[in-house]
Structure formats: structure tokens, C-alpha cells
């Protein structure tokens, strides 16, 4: 069984079993594949270098749209312009955090630096955002309903399995963030 993250002498520590690490690695890789764009041959290399993408569109997948939301409410043209200038760098920073977290899953005893912890918290958050879209969590009542499913013997279909995975990831992220807040408090 996984142990909650805690902040102590050595820093932020946690423990995940092999099967739990495999599960998380799979989820992280799924989100990485969603965020990776195919490079186009006709792409302007200079534009790519400075992070522009003039051909970008608003994502049609709701989960991807939640990861890369519109930056202006009720302003499609403004949001698209913002995307052209910034979406590539948001994708890259997310992929960076997801990859670093997946790489850190190489042993069961976890010891995270402040920077590791920040990347882990971002990566776990992105995993939860994607799972929440797949589970149709639209409001607090939906979230409470999903949260009530805690018993792995209830995992009888894809939805209940996803709900249990979501709850596990939520629990893990919450313990991590509490440790990060404890670390912040210690520093101030």
C-alpha cells in the first residue's frame, strides 16, 4: 500500500508499491501523448524555435481543452491569438513535468526536492483534470459522488475503476501538497 507523502528531516518523502507506480506511469504517459503534437514538415523552424504556432486551433477534446483552456472569456479571436503565442510553451512545460514525474517513479521509496515536488504536483493535477473529464465531473455534486467510491471491490466496470483511480490520485496529490505547504511554512 502507498504511504502518504510527508515533510520531515530529509525533505518530502513517500512510498509507492510497484503496481501503484506502474499505474501512475501509465496515466502520466497517457497525458503526455495527449499533449504531444505531431511536428509538421512545412513548419516554420524559426517560429517553432521561439514557441509560436500560427496553425494552432482550440482543442476539440474536452480534456485537452481543460489542460489548455481559452485565456479570454467570450473572445474566441483573442483566445486563439493567445494560443498561437503561448500554447506551445504551456504544452512543453506540462510535458516536462509529466516526464520528470514518470522518471522519478523508478523506486518505491520516494524523496522529493522542492522542485521535484512542484513538478509532481503539476503532473498529478493534470492527470486528475483528464480523469475528471473522462468521468464527467462537472460540478461539486459530481465530485462528491465520485469521491464516495472508495472500495476497490466496487470496481466492476470502466467508470468505477476510473473513479477509484481518480480518488487514489487525489489522495496522493493532497498529501503531497500538504507536505509542500508544510515545507513553505518552515521556510518563512
Amino acid at each position: 500500500m502507498a504511504k502518504a507523502f510527508k515533510y520531515g528531516f530529509k525533505g518530502i518523502t513517500g512510498y509507492l508499491e510497484h503496481a501503484e507506480r506502474e499505474l501512475l506511469r501509465g496515466l502520466l504517459n497517457d497525458v503526455i501523448s495527449m499533449l504531444e503534437t505531431e511536428s509538421r514538415e512545412d513548419e516554420d523552424p524559426l517560429a517553432a524555435l521561439i514557441g509560436l504556432d500560427m496553425d494552432v486551433q482550440e482543442p476539440s477534446d474536452r480534456a485537452l481543452l481543460r489542460l489548455l483552456p481559452n485565456a479570454m472569456k467570450d473572445d474566441d479571436a483573442g483566445s486563439l491569438e493567445f494560443r498561437q503565442l503561448t500554447e506551445r510553451s504551456v504544452r512543453e512545460s506540462k510535458i516536462g513535468a509529466l516526464r520528470a514525474t514518470a522518471l522519478g517513479l523508478d523506486k518505491d521509496e520516494l524523496l522529493l526536492s522542492a522542485e521535484d515536488a512542484r513538478r509532481w504536483s503539476m503532473a498529478l493535477n493534470d492527470v486528475r483534470l483528464v480523469l475528471a473529464e473522462r468521468l464527467d465531473i462537472r460540478d461539486e455534486a459530481d465530485a462528491d459522488h465520485i469521491h464516495s467510491m472508495q472500495d476497490w471491490s466496487q470496481a466492476e466496470d470502466v467508470e468505477s475503476y476510473l473513479a477509484l483511480v481518480y480518488n487514489f490520485t487525489t489522495w496522493l496529490q493532497e498529501s503531497l501538497v500538504q507536505s509542500m505547504l508544510a515545507a513553505l511554512e518552515r521556510k518563512s
Binding site: R66, L67, P69, A71, M72, K94, M122
Partner: peptide, 18 residues
């Protein structure tokens, strides 16, 4: 604020500028 919005999207928060 656009720079902050990029950072917030990086963290997974739902941010807009106005």
C-alpha cells in the same frame, strides 16, 4: 497578466485575462 495566465495554465488552474 498574460504571462501569469500562461503560468496558471501550466499549474492546471483555469485562468483568463480581462
Amino acid at each position: 497578466v498574460e504571462q501569469h495566465a500562461v503560468a496558471m495554465h501550466g499549474f492546471g488552474l483555469w485562468a483568463t485575462v480581462e
